[in-house]
Design a protein around this nucleic acid. Structure first.
Length: 426
DNA sequence: TCTGGGGTCCTAGGACCC
DNA sequence: TCTGGGGTCCTAGGACCC
């Protein structure tokens, strides 16, 4: 039996955990660059705010003037996610983190009433990790996801929905739309809708061959899972990464090559840091740049994939990325976004020695280790490759960034004795 | 002025091989 | 006049997820 627990309005809940003044108020968290809405509290949903709403348009509406907002703070959310995971590990033997705010649980063989257990689990996460959650229970991951969705929709309920019984499932399938299913997106809803299939019950009634023809093997898997056949086991070992990227929209359009070169250089430095954190090396990279997709600027978008000598060396990677970017660069456009994606990744330990390396691998490894530890000790960006100096002009906007309460000592929450103390407890 | 970022998986079609 | 069969690998693009 599977459980799926997920944080309600997770990013907003993280902000609220450290700022009680935000409780009970409509609050949204914005994407990078303060571009669009990516998390909303119930109060904000009630005001009609949608996922993906462009913030600059929302702000203009007078009735939404009092909506609180924050720039996204992934260092904080990632750490809160870890706390949630640790609380759960104490209560359930197997926990599989699925996304920053969701974890699958193995509930097989746990004694006592399943629903009651999950209610207690939810309380513990609320109390210790300060995150309100909902839990779905079912014999497959897809059904647990569905149950979770139903729990979230039932605002007066216990926050737990148990679909382990076939009868309860059958009646739920009648009421839920196919588009609310995990794995069924817009395109599939269109295809099924054309055949008059709108509810999960109708979908489940289709013959498997028909489902495969329509939605390929992924659709077939969802179909089987809904019928109680588990096709997605719990995996405790996270699968090896296949790609790793750093891509950003610019705060302000980039029009000269120097600024683009710097941007791509910095994105490469970041991606290379991430590469080393994961103990990986890349043997190919993709670089892209593009103009704004939404406004009336003349359009240009291009990307190039280049093989590289397998490495995690920032200098080598910046060099390759800069050359690739130069091939893409065309004068006269207003660039809005660029990115660097590493593909063909290998664990550092598994990379065979090159016969004629262009850089001494041992020297490179020592240099990278030194660079990373200096930056860890003296703050991010204490040392940089020459020629890749960050320039504020085009960097992303993050106008209302909350402190990294839990990951940086200089931003830790202050509590005062005597006056009104800032407590994390309710 | 202003519309995110980072992933995975599947399929079709082309290039190439014997 | 006639033009196979079987296979692999790579890439681009679509679809989906959070």
């Amino acid at each position: 039996m599977f459980g799926l627990i997920d944080g309600n309005s997770f990013y907003c809940s993280c902000e609220r955990a450290f700022n009680p003044a935000l409780r009970g108020k409509p609050l949204v968290v914005l994407s990078n660059n303060d571009g669009c809405v990516i998390a909303r509290t119930q109060e904000a949903k009630d005001l009609g705010l949608k996922m993906g709403d462009a913030w600059h348009l929302v702000r203009q509406k007078p009735e939404l003037r009092d909506v609180e907002w924050r720039s996204s703070n992934y260092a904080l959310y990632g750490d809160m996610s870890r706390r949630m995971y640790e609380v759960l590990l104490e209560l359930v033997p197997l926990v599989e983190p699925y996304s920053i705010d969701e974890m699958f649980l193995d509930l097989t063989g746990l004694p006592g009433d399943m629903t009651a257990r999950c209610i207690a689990m939810r309380d513990a996460v609320r109390r210790i990790a300060k995150i309100p959650t909902c839990v779905g229970i079912g014999p497959t991951k897809t059904i647990a996801k569905l149950a979770n969705r139903i729990a979230k929709g039932d605002r007066a309920g216990s926050g737990v929905c148990n679909l382990s019984s076939a009868d309860v499932r059958a009646s739920a399938y009648e009421k839920v739309l196919i588009g609310d299913l995990w794995g069924i997106g817009r395109a599939s809803v269109g295809k099924l809708g054309a055949l008059g299939i709108d509810t999960i019950a109708q979908f489940v009634a289709l013959p498997p061959d028909r489902v495969r023809d329509l939605l390929t093997v992924t659709g077939l898997r969802t179909h089987a899972e809904l019928r109680g056949i588990s096709c997605m086991p719990l995996s405790l070992i996270p699968p090896a990464k296949k790609s790793l990227a750093h891509t950003r929209s610019f705060g302000e359009a980039v029009t000269d090559w120097d600024a683009m070169r710097e941007a791509v250089g910095i994105y490469t430095v970041r991606a290379a840091e991430k590469l080393r954190r994961h103990g990986l090396m890349a043997s190919a990279m993709q670089v892209f740049m593009r103009t704004n997709e939404f406004n009336n600027d003349s359009k240009y978008a291009n990307s190039v994939t280049v093989p590289i000598e397998t490495t995690a060396d920032t200098f080598a990677l910046v060099d390759a990325a800069t050359k690739a970017a130069f091939r893409l660069w065309r004068d006269g456009f207003r660039y809005a976004k660029a990115g660097v994606i590493f593909i063909d990744l290998y664990p550092t330990a598994a990379v065979p020695a090159s016969l004629f390396p262009s850089r001494d691998p041992e020297h490179s490894a020592r240099l990278m280790t030194a660079m990373d530890s200096i930056n860890r000790r003296f703050g991010r960006d204490a040392v940089w490759p020459g020629g890749v100096k960050p320039e504020a002009r085009w960097q992303m906007r993050r106008a209302r960034l909350s402190p990294c309460y839990t990951t940086r000592f200089d931003q830790i929450l202050e509590a005062r004795c005597g006056g009104r103390s800032v407590l994390l407890e309710d």
